[in-house]
């Protein structure tokens, strides 16, 4: 004979209860609990309501877009897409920045968003971009080395494989950033500056944000 459900046990089964996929005994136990628990009843109503809203969602059509051009004939601009890069690369970047304790953030004032003038002189930009590139490059190398020398758990091994695999790509991205910038000099406009700002903002995010992401990342890696 089974005892009555606690709220926690009830909530555990509530979704299956709503969808009537519980075995008879569990179904009955949830039922019993619901007869005297207002809180779980409120949750049940919420689930019902939201579920009916969810089923009334009408899928919207994807706006027209040129897939071939997007994937196979990339134009030099916007770089945004190319820079948004890969999932793996983002992971690597976060790791790298964490490992390096983002020593560059303070010294490297590439903060366009905060500057008053919209226009940044081109040599200045080139110089800043180049220094970002160099720093990132050496940080990548040192982080990969550091990881290699650490004692390796299974999770770290997985992450390292990921690191190694996307290391070359990340380097290539950094190279592309400069090349593309040069290519786009002619069409220089507010929008190109916007894109650059975006690029650099996503390169050098503030410490807190990166730490948040890193926490999430560590949890993910522990679940590998």
């Amino acid at each position: 004979m089974k005892t009555e459900y606690s709220c926690e046990q009830c909530k555990e089964q509530l979704f299956d209860f709503v969808n009537s996929v519980l075995p008879p005994l569990e179904q009955q136990l949830v039922d019993q609990h619901l007869q005297h628990c207002d809180e779980c009843n409120a949750d049940l109503t919420d689930i019902w309501n939201l579920q009916s809203k969810a089923t009334s969602w009408r899928d919207e059509r994807v706006p027209r877009w040129n897939r071939r051009q997007f994937f196979f004939e990339p134009s030099p601009w916007p770089m945004r897409m190319q820079w948004a890069a890969s999932f793996a690369s983002v992971l690597v970047l976060i790791l790298v920045l964490m490992e390096a304790r983002i020593s560059t953030v303070g010294g490297l004032t590439v903060d366009f968003a905060a500057s008053d003038s919209r226009y940044v002189s081109q040599p200045e930009l080139m110089q800043q971009l180049a220094s970002v590139q160099n720093l990132q490059r050496s940080e990548l190398d040192s982080s990969v080395q550091k990881l290699t020398s650490q004692q390796i758990t299974t999770n770290q091994l997985l992450l390292r494989t990921l690191l190694d695999a996307s290391r070359q790509e990340r380097r290539k991205d950094l190279g592309n950033m400069l090349v593309l910038w040069e290519q786009a000099q002619d069409q220089r406009s507010v929008s190109t500056e916007e894109s650059l700002r975006y690029l650099i903002a996503s390169q050098i995010q503030d410490r807190r944000e990166i730490e948040d992401l890193n926490d999430a990342l560590l949890q993910v890696s522990n679940n590998f």
């Binding site: 994807v62 877009w65 190319q82 890969s86 999932f87 793996a88 990921l162 695999a165």
Partner: peptide
């Protein structure tokens, strides 16, 4: 936002495309 949704769609697909081998 439809515009943001489209940006994200493209970003994600590009990431997937570039990392398909992993």
């Amino acid at each position: 936002s439809p515009d943001d949704a489209m940006d994200i769609l493209q970003d994600v697909l590009m990431s997937v495309y570039r990392n398909l081998s992993t």
